[in-house]
Design a protein around this nucleic acid. Structure first.
Lengths: 168, 168
DNA sequence: AAATACTTTCAAAAAATTTTGAAAGTTCAA
DNA sequence: TTGAACTTTCAAAATTTTTTGAAAGTATTT
């Protein structure tokens, strides 16, 4: 397998996997492409490499930037914008965990909170059962949320931890 | 809010959230419906409650059974099949973690493994960079995999743990 | 064996999502 | 201020996913 073949493979695989992770194929492919590119790429480079339209590249790159795993790079003297992916896999993982928590977990919690304001006859066994199920879901979701939060916080503290050690 | 309104709310919310979790809206709704139903439901009940077709109910219920979070229940004397959701939220979480690991993480690992068989000039800095990125992805994915595995194993052992204590 | 009461399948239709590309918008140099 | 070099937007088109419903399949009763 040559380097280019291997890259092609990885980009395709990442794209396929993207769909099962709830990310569009193209967004995953753009990410993979930038991830394995040794240098930042322009919109045109990405269009060329993945054979997709300008608008498509623009939207997907913007989304990746929103996710915090791709950065805009401006080269002095160049008008064009270049893009590069975060290469530190741990940072990518943390960023994705953070975003998914925000986008997926927090809405669940809000929805459960709203539903648990049900004011009905607690003696009704059906109401009791429902309230209990919702309560359990809430506990589970909020535990998951807190666990993720502390992992993320611990990771962010790591920097400050080493930073302060310099001064102790 | 009445009980039925609260149930409707939860089903709708679960459906919306499903999409961002890579699960189809309807599958999530069927799951929510069964989760808040105090009794097992038939295909017809589900059709009626969610206003969807027979085939659709059949497929989504089958998928939920594949995921291991819904069970077929046969009532003596009844020809129809009834369905009920696993109500233990921790068990649901574990089951979902287990399936997602199998369906999402393991394919990533296989794809990375395949790509890392690249046989190219290691002195080429581009090849080196690529190999390193893939290596890091592999490490991260396999760490995640192992962590999940041990949580799942620990959870499964919990039962045997208490079971053996009875005999010590 | 035939009728009945179900469940499953799957091709076609509908719905949702993604992609395109041309037009509008922006930025900057001259 | 104008024009060149880019980026962004968005309505329409293409694609993918989901849903439907009728036909086929299966099991049970008579």
């Amino acid at each position: 397998m040559t380097l280019d073949e291997a890259k092609q493979h990885l980009i395709q695989a990442w794209g396929t996997l993207g769909s099962s992770w709830g990310v569009s194929r193209t967004m995953a492919q753009v990410h993979a492409l930038l991830l394995v590119s040794p240098v930042p790429m322009t919109t045109e480079d990405i269009m060329e490499a993945l054979q997709i339209s300008r608008g498509n590249v623009n939207m997907n790159v913007r989304d990746l930037i929103d996710w915090g795993i791709v950065r805009k790079v401006l080269k002095p003297g160049e008008r064009k914008e270049f893009f590069e992916a975060e290469k530190d896999v741990w940072k990518i993982g943390m960023q994705v965990a953070k975003e998914r928590k925000k986008r997926e977990l927090e809405p669940v919690l809000r929805a459960l909170e709203q539903v648990s304001t049900i004011e009905a006859d607690i003696t009704d066994p059906d109401v009791k059962q429902f309230a209990e199920t919702v309560e359990n879901l809430k506990k589970f979701a909020s535990n998951t949320d807190k666990t993720l939060e502390s992992i993320i916080k611990a990771d962010e503290n790591w920097f400050w931890g080493s930073f302060f050690k310099l001064f102790k």
